[in-house]
């Protein structure tokens, strides 16, 4: 074998080795080591049924367990003078009392970066008031569309369906669907519950910019809220075949002093043939919403309540 040939061979092999190592390093930097499956057009395949497993829908901030979402102060105890009695604590409000442990709130770690929601002073006061009026005000109770990002971490699964220019996120709760426009799309003609979603790929991350919200939705059952100036940026990144990392940036200059972030893993529902089922909750809330209007007795014309 001529020397020039050996030299050339060594150089070629070295180039291939160096090149492939460099490519691996580059791709691992880009996607934290995990290479997601690809769709037919080469995009990361995020399709499947997913669900959050946390207590963020109760409260996006860290919270201890408590007896109920709606609490009232217990009546003070009058006892024999000079004898110590157990201190009165908040107890479940009459409307939810019969639920017992089913109506209690599990403790949970917060999903907010730094565990602080940076409300403006007036907004912090309103948040507190929302807690006191949770039963009347939480849109979840009325089966209203949950908004973004709350829809993601409610205790129901959702399905990502990757179409050609459109990605759908189909939520089980209230049969709500979001259309993520991957092509150019005009602004929404009116504010909406689920907002207008524009998607793009940043490396292997699906980034969704969501605007055109109304001010009706909440972030959780703890009264965390926003205005119609809400701007959400979501980032969905596959980190294993079974996990997505979900990051949200929340911006609302009318309510918060600065943008803030939430992050959480989403888990694949791996049951065979897992479906998103119907949850048409409208008929489940009609009694709560309209029952107070009673039923007309056609014989007498009286309304029975």
């Amino acid at each position: 074998m001529p020397t020039w040939f050996k030299t050339a061979l060594v150089a070629i092999v070295a180039a291939i080795v160096v090149g492939s190592v460099w490519a691996q390093v580059r791709s691992s930097r880009r996607s934290a080591g995990y290479q997601p499956a690809r769709t037919a057009d080469g995009k990361p395949d995020l399709s499947g049924v997913w669900q959050a497993l946390n207590t963020a829908n109760f409260d996006i901030q860290s919270h201890p367990a408590r007896p109920a979402l709606a609490l009232i102060p217990a009546a003070p105890r009058t006892g024999v003078a000079g004898l110590v009695r157990a201190t009165p604590t908040d107890i479940p409000a009459p409307a939810v009392r019969a639920l017992g442990a089913v109506g209690a709130v599990p403790a949970g770690e917060g999903v907010v970066d730094g565990d602080e929601v940076p409300y403006q002073p007036w907004a912090a006061a309103k948040k507190k008031e929302n807690v006191e009026h949770w039963l009347e005000r939480d849109p979840e109770i009325k089966c209203f569309m949950p908004g973004v990002p709350r829809a993601t971490y409610m205790p129901y699964p959702f399905q990502i369906l990757q179409g050609t220019d459109t990605i759908l996120i189909a939520y089980e709760f209230a049969g709500t669907t979001r259309t993520i426009h991957m092509n150019k799309v005009g602004n929404s003609p009116s504010p909406s519950w689920m907002g207008l979603s524009r998607g793009r790929w940043e490396g292997d991350t699906l980034v969704v910019d969501v605007t055109d919200f109304n001010d009706e939705t909440w972030f959780d059952r703890a009264g965390n809220f926003h205005s119609d100036a809400l701007h959400i940026v979501e980032r969905y990144t596959a980190v294993s075949p079974y996990h997505l990392m979900y990051e949200v940036t929340v911006e609302d200059p009318k309510v918060f002093t600065r943008p803030w972030k939430m992050r959480m893993p989403l888990y694949r529902r791996t049951e065979k043939d897992k479906r998103i089922l119907e949850y048409k909750c409208v008929e489940f809330v009609e009694e709560a919403m309209y029952g107070h209007l009673g039923v007309v007795d056609p014989a007498t014309g009286h309304t029975n309540k």
Binding site: T39, T164, T176
Partner: peptide, 20 residues
């Protein structure tokens, strides 16, 4: 109508009815 491998999804605007 939005299609993805293994699914045909129909979104009906009214009542936001949806079939996956």
């Amino acid at each position: 109508i939005v299609q993805s491998p293994g699914y045909v999804t129909i979104l009906h605007e009214e009542y936001r009815d949806r079939r996956i």
